[in-house]
Computed example of a mutant assay.
Amino acid sequence: MKILLTFFTFYLISDKLNVYKVSGFSGGRLMIKCEHPQYKTKPKYICKESDGCSERKSPGVQDEWMENGDVSLYDDTRAGVLMVFFRELKAADAGTYRCGVKESDYTERFIELQLSVKHDAKYPKRVTESVYLGEEVIITCQIPEKHKVHFCKEDDNHICQNISSSKVTEMSGSSERNEERVVTVSISNVSVRDAGVYWCGAETRDTDLTFISLNTQIQLNLISNAEFNNLLDSLDFTQHVNVPTHSRGHTLDLLITNSTSITNLSVHDLGVSDHKAITLELPTLFPISKPSRKICFRNLKNINPVTLTTDLCHLFAANPLSVTNSVDLYNSSLSSLLDRHAPVKSRNVTFTCSAPWYTKELRLQKRTGRVLERRFKDSGLAVHKLAGTSEGLQQVPR
Rank of each mutant, 00 (worst) to 15 (best):
K2E: 11
T6Q: 01
I13R: 06
K16S: 12
L17R: 09
N18K: 15
V22P: 02
V22R: 02
F25Y: 03
G27Y: 02
H36G: 04
Y39N: 15
Y39L: 15
K40Q: 11
Y45E: 01
I46Q: 02
D51W: 08
C53T: 07
S54R: 09
K57M: 07
V61G: 03
E67C: 06
G69V: 08
D70P: 00
V71S: 00
S72L: 03
S72M: 07
L73F: 04
Y74F: 14
T77V: 14
G80F: 01
V81Q: 04
L82I: 09
M83R: 01
R87G: 01
A91L: 06
A92M: 08
D93F: 02
A94C: 04
A94Y: 01
G95P: 05
T96Q: 03
Y97C: 05
V101G: 01
K102D: 05
E112V: 09
V117K: 00
K125S: 02
T128Q: 06
E129P: 06
V131P: 01
Y132L: 13
E136M: 15
E136G: 08
I138W: 00
I139Y: 02
I139V: 07
T140N: 09
Q142R: 06
Q142S: 05
P144N: 05
H147I: 03
K148M: 14
F151G: 00
E154P: 05
N157C: 10
I159R: 00
N162R: 14
E170N: 11
M171T: 10
N178H: 12
N178K: 15
R181D: 04
V190H: 02
D194N: 11
A195P: 00
Y198F: 07
C200Y: 00
T204I: 05
D206K: 11
N215S: 05
L220R: 01
L220H: 04
L222A: 12
I223S: 13
A226F: 11
N229V: 12
N229E: 15
N230L: 13
S234A: 10
D236E: 12
T238N: 07
H246E: 04
H246A: 06
G249H: 04
D253N: 14
L255F: 12
I256L: 11
N258Q: 14
S259T: 08
T260I: 08
S266G: 08
V267K: 01
K276V: 08
I278C: 03
I278R: 02
I278V: 06
L280W: 03
E281P: 03
T284P: 06
K290M: 15
K290C: 14
P291V: 15
N299W: 08
L300W: 12
K301A: 13
V306H: 10
L308I: 13
T309L: 14
L315F: 11
P320Y: 05
T324C: 07
S326C: 11
S326M: 13
D328G: 07
Y330A: 04
N331P: 02
S332D: 13
S333T: 10
L334Q: 08
L334A: 09
S336E: 06
H341A: 09
P343A: 15
V344E: 07
S346Q: 15
R347Y: 10
N348R: 15
V349L: 14
T350L: 12
F351V: 15
P356Y: 07
Y358E: 10
K360S: 11
E361H: 14
E361P: 03
L362H: 12
R363L: 12
L364R: 10
Q365M: 12
L372S: 09
E373M: 03
R375P: 00
V383C: 11
K385G: 02
G388I: 09
G392T: 11
